[in-house]
Write a protein that binds this DNA or RNA. Structure first.
Lengths: 254, 254
DNA sequence: TAGTGGTCTAGACCACCTA
DNA sequence: AGGTGGTCTAGACCACTAC
């Protein structure tokens, strides 16, 4: 095993077995260089592996620190659940103001030609446009996730969806009032490393993967009316949902 | 912007815009060293960033190659769905043999003291034991995911669950026949970089995050009877599920 | 302003696989 | 056998920020 991996392994062991609890300062590069009698680059390579795994964070010039991770719950299902409504406050804001954290979101609305994955899911023809509501959500000033909702222009036009404000009753309610009630949603979750743009928008540290959560909403007759692209930093979320056995289901499992 | 990031950015752009399609060979380190007039380590740092992002793979000594990624569908919901049963074949095997891929799994059964997260979810006291069925699933010879199912020893004892074989009708059916019908499941999905053990067990390349999918199954009266820990490599899966609007739900959305 | 990590250079030797 | 990436050394200068 290469020297740098041995060094990394010793530090990793300390982190996982609790002898280096979150917040602990790691030895400096100079310390490691001397302790293991290696070149500085070798010590750096060891630490950089830990940084890439998301275990350690560099806080220049104070040194490297063991990272503290405490994910939040993220429930795709809340969409179909009753919720306490505060006037002028949407789901995200309402949910988290209860837990004592300071929620905030930026909203930006634009009319755009949709990206290909959105286009396909909304079954749009070439040249058809969409309305996109781009939101970045913050909790206690830290970016929490991004949420880009796409609607066919024909459905969203001249509705509250076009206004860059919170929609307290939710965009789906707006669509429902126009005759498009969403009764089914398809969720897809991809797990990958972030793009540089996502890294910037969400202020991600190195070694932080993201969940890319795509929701497609359908009406009763199977028409897609809404696609949401969520980007959830892995170190800040647990995705949770619940499944109930339907009366028609057999009693089986993998 | 540091030189190595500029180099990485140019290569990344080529990969994402399609001018460097999957399978393409990247310039060698020597090429980059000369083209950008930098030291070899600088070129290496650029490429290593791409490797860490999972975009590129090193195939020594042939060079670096643009990675090909084609995820498979993973549906937690299949558990509550009717499925075509082939005798002696469990869900995983039955599902994928249809698609022309070669499924295979290794099964290992053990009686263990459960890890703390399992213990908590099964509400076990100290010293209580569990039966764990550890499976590694392969498709066309490549590891696909791991699936460790934990059952309270008292429930699984003296049942087929203890035998290291496929259970064609599913472990849940076995439990149901003993009077423990699972009617509800709680899913939690964590996104993170793999541990070294997971890296080894799933033969993960660098820069491959995993989804850690925990399922807790409950009976009608809320007793937890089963915890499943799935580890899904991000480059090999899409997690997909569907949500239906219940009659009692309001017509709302985030 | 001292000390930290961030970047970069210029060399060296090695293991491994493909041709 | 030759070329590839993998590892490592020994230096250098810089930017940032806590003190």
């Amino acid at each position: 095993m290469p020297v740098w991996q041995q060094i990394a392994e010793e530090l990793r062991a300390g982190i996982t077995d609790g002898s280096l609890p979150p917040g602990t300062r790691l030895p400096t590069e100079a310390d490691l260089t001397e302790r293991y009698q290696v070149a500085r680059n070798t010590a750096r390579q060891a630490i950089s592996a830990l940084v890439n795994e998301g275990l350690v964070i560099a806080a220049r010039p104070r040194g490297y620190f063991v990272r503290d991770r405490r994910p939040l719950e993220y429930r795709p299902q809340q969409e179909f659940r009753p919720r306490p409504l505060s006037p002028e406050m949407d789901v995200f804001l309402a949910e988290h103001s209860a837990t004592g954290r300071e929620p905030m979101q930026t909203i930006e609305v634009a009319i755009v030609e949709p990206p290909t994955d959105v286009k396909r899911r909304l079954r749009l023809a070439d040249g058809e446009f969409t309305v996109v509501r781009r939101r970045v959500r913050y909790l206690d000033g830290e970016p929490y996730n991004t949420n880009d909702s796409y609607f066919p222009l024909s459905l969203a036009q001249d509705s509250e969806i076009m206004r860059p404000d919170d929609i307290a009753r939710g965009a789906n309610q707006v669509l429902a009032e126009k005759g498009f009630l969403q009764v089914r949603a398809l969720d897809e979750i991809y797990v990958r490393m972030p793009t540089p743009i996502e890294t910037q928008r969400l202020q991600l540290g190195p070694g932080t993967p993201v969940a890319y959560h795509v929701v497609t909403g359908f009406t009763e007759d199977g028409r897609p009316i809404r696609v949401v692209l969520n980007v959830l930093p892995g170190d800040r979320h647990v995705i949770a949902f619940e499944r109930l056995r339907l009366p028609s289901d057999p009693a089986e499992a993998p």
